[in-house]
């Protein structure tokens, strides 16, 4: 999507794209805030499901910091999940 911005010649079109990007991003960041401190279920690759309390994400959404991670080997007090290992996550609001 960064590339597409570079090849968009029309300034009005570029502005529309930037506004769209802002609207999308804002709502996503708000969802991360809403998720803070809540129990979240993570579906990982290879049929692994884990639950944890969501802490924070880095700005590029590459890692999630969680606590009380329930693994088959026990509860991990603090952990970092790599987003590339996650297929999906869910929580209730």
């Amino acid at each position: 999507s960064n590339l597409s911005s570079l090849v968009t010649a029309n300034p009005a079109e570029l502005e529309r794209e930037q506004e769209g990007r802002v609207a999308l991003r804002k709502r996503y960041l708000r969802s991360l805030l809403a998720m803070t401190g809540r129990p979240v279920n993570f579906t990982m690759y290879e049929k692994v499901n884990v639950g944890a309390l969501f802490g924070a994400s880095d700005i590029d959404i590459l890692n999630f910091q969680v606590s009380e991670l329930k693994t088959p080997l026990g509860v991990q007090k603090e952990a970092l999940l790599r987003c590339s290992d996650i297929i999906a996550y869910s929580f209730e609001l």
Binding site: S31, A34, M35, C83, S84, I86, I87, A88, Y89, S90, F91, E92, L93
Partner: peptide
Amino acid sequence: GKMSISAVLGHA
């Protein structure tokens, strides 16, 4: 009455 929120990661 609650909402279930799920996210599917872009790469998946």
